[in-house]
Design a protein around this nucleic acid. Sequence first.
DNA 1: ACAAAAAGTGTACGAGCGTACACGGGATTA
DNA 2: TAATCCCGTGTACGCTCGTACACTTTTTGT
Lengths: 205, 205
Amino acid sequence: MRGLTEKQKRILQLISEHIDTCGFPPTYQQMCDQLGFSSKNAIKKHIDALVAKGYLEKDSSPRGMRIVDPAYQPASLNESAVPLIGHVAAGFPILAEENVERYVPVPRHLITSEGRYFALRVRGDSMINAGIFENDLVIVKAANVAGHNDIVVALLGDEVTVKRLIVEPPLTYLKAENPAYQDIIPQESWTIQGKVVGLVRETMN
Amino acid sequence: MRGLTEKQKRILQLISEHIDTCGFPPTYQQMCDQLGFSSKNAIKKHIDALVAKGYLEKDSSPRGMRIVDPAYQPASLNESAVPLIGHVAAGFPILAEENVERYVPVPRHLITSEGRYFALRVRGDSMINAGIFENDLVIVKAANVAGHNDIVVALLGDEVTVKRLIVEPPLTYLKAENPAYQDIIPQESWTIQGKVVGLVRETMN
DNA sequence: ACAAAAAGTGTACGAGCGTACACGGGATTA
DNA sequence: TAATCCCGTGTACGCTCGTACACTTTTTGT
């Protein structure tokens, strides 16, 4: 993977931009028009050079190209998106479409193999000692069980809460990471919804 | 934008998966093969229905489709990737290609218009009271100046550090968010490299 | 029970796309 | 001066893709 000429860089950038804008790579003709060329062959030669140098992969059908170099990657392919659960409507399962506010990108290696994931906006400051602040988004792997000391998302009645799970047989309870809060030893039935595997903070003020 | 039939959902999902895998949408023929159909028209009708319902946009050239519904958005288009700066080689500008370790996806709305951004892995626990832990990735907007109370990335000699910027004329200094650390009132020359605008935590242990 | 919508097959066609080949010009190097 | 890249033009060709039309079957709704 050696150096690129200026024109070749321009081509890569053009492809990347087009994918960002339209969701798919451009045709040779479109790139011609955009660069003011009048022959598709100018493009083809650059593309061939890029393939030869390993920056691009091609399959010879229309728009059939894929950028290899991560520096020019449009936006994704090493990443994935998980649904951000907004207000949880009572009665609905937590992952129901009705609850999805938007989607949050996360590094793909957080999303190991299969398993459903979601994001949740944190309310309150009960976990500040674990570095989880109000309005942070926690990335959660859906699960019904979890281990000792895992940070989990639990459902108590209608309320969704993020706490540390403490397993000290015969006792299992939820612990806040903030001395101002007491442990929660639920009387009513409660369920684990998932395990926190990551965090995204979008506001720094 | 009304309800979809099961088959139509399947089609949307198929397109999304293909984009994830290959970087561009499939052709009608490819979708046929994958679903075991023997006529491209089956696909075309579903696609037309999806367009009519507003879930898809089409331009009548090969692979020319774009998913509108965010729930089926492949992985990107609402997100962007910023370079993760690994070890900073002395002498190199911080954003030099040599320093890039990999790319980190972040929500696009963090990346306002133009301006260069990067990510940095946090070393040490000097900012724990701001909820910034060791090994967290801070998302940084490159800048040479910053305001009072901003969390900034500063370069002191060869060392890159994350601290809160305190502007109390005539004094300007860096403050750690951890009582165990003292304020840094640099004698030598130092520069602001950028302002922290977000945070990503990939490890929760 | 009847009509309408959804789902799928088969054939044929025209246009757009990638490709191949021949050609010209400028810049750098031996 | 010749050789070699890099860059662009022009023409022609064949294949693939999206599209249109006719027809069948199953599911849904009133």
